Amino acid sequence: MKTPLRPLVLSLLAGSAAVSLRALEWQTSHLERRPPAGAEVVRVEYRFRNSTPKPVRITGLTTSCGCTEASVDDTMVRPGASGSVKVLFTVGKRTGRQLKSIYVHTDETPGLTELELVVELPSEGAWQ
C-alpha cells in the first residue's frame, strides 16, 4: 500500500512551524559594537514587531550581568505594532570581548527570547 507523502510532509511542516513561531519578530537578535577607547557605556536597541493578531505583553526583561540593563517603553504591544528593547552596557574596568545576554519574557511565547550583545573593548593598556 502506497502512503501519500505530501499530506504527511505538510502536516509535519505545519506542526513544526507552530512550535517555532514567535509572537515578536526581531529585526536582529545579535548586535556587535566596538566603542571608542575611554567610552563609559554602550547603548543599543533591538527592534521588534508584533506579527500576531492579538496583543502581546512583555512580562519581563533579564540580563546575564549586572553591568547590563534592559528596558522597554511599552510592555503591551498591539497587533502589528513595533517597539524596541533598549540596552545599556556599563564598561567599567572591563577589557576584551564581552558577551552579554538579554532575555525577553512574553505572555505569548513559551520560554524566552535571547538577545546577544557582543562588545569588543580595547585590551588593558590600550585605554591610555
Results as ranks from 00 to 15, higher is better:
residue 1 M to A: 06
residue 2 K to I: 01
residue 2 K to A: 09
residue 2 K to Q: 07
residue 6 R to V: 13
residue 7 P to V: 09
residue 8 L to M: 10
residue 15 G to S: 02
residue 16 S to C: 11
residue 18 A to D: 01
residue 18 A to G: 11
residue 18 A to K: 00
residue 18 A to W: 06
residue 19 V to P: 03
residue 19 V to R: 00
residue 24 L to D: 01
residue 24 L to P: 01
residue 24 L to Q: 05
residue 27 Q to I: 09
residue 29 S to A: 12
residue 31 L to D: 07
residue 34 R to K: 12
residue 35 P to I: 02
residue 36 P to C: 01
residue 36 P to H: 03
residue 37 A to R: 12
residue 37 A to E: 04
residue 37 A to C: 03
residue 38 G to S: 01
residue 39 A to G: 06
residue 43 R to M: 14
residue 44 V to T: 14
residue 45 E to F: 09
residue 47 R to C: 11
residue 47 R to L: 14
residue 48 F to A: 14
residue 49 R to C: 03
residue 55 P to E: 09
residue 56 V to W: 08
residue 57 R to D: 08
residue 60 G to Q: 04
residue 61 L to F: 10
residue 65 C to A: 11
residue 65 C to K: 03
residue 65 C to W: 07
residue 69 E to W: 03
residue 70 A to G: 04
residue 71 S to H: 07
residue 72 V to G: 06
residue 73 D to G: 02
residue 74 D to G: 09
residue 75 T to E: 11
residue 79 P to E: 07
residue 81 A to H: 10
residue 82 S to E: 15
residue 90 T to R: 15
residue 90 T to W: 00
residue 93 K to E: 13
residue 95 T to W: 04
residue 95 T to G: 11
residue 96 G to E: 07
residue 96 G to V: 05
residue 97 R to C: 03
residue 97 R to F: 02
residue 103 Y to I: 13
residue 104 V to S: 12
residue 109 T to Y: 09
residue 109 T to E: 15
residue 110 P to C: 04
residue 112 L to F: 11
residue 112 L to S: 06
residue 112 L to W: 02
residue 113 T to M: 09
residue 113 T to E: 14
residue 116 E to K: 14
residue 117 L to P: 08
residue 117 L to G: 11
residue 119 V to E: 10
residue 120 E to C: 06
residue 122 P to K: 01
residue 122 P to E: 03
residue 122 P to H: 01
residue 122 P to T: 05
residue 123 S to I: 02
residue 128 Q to V: 05
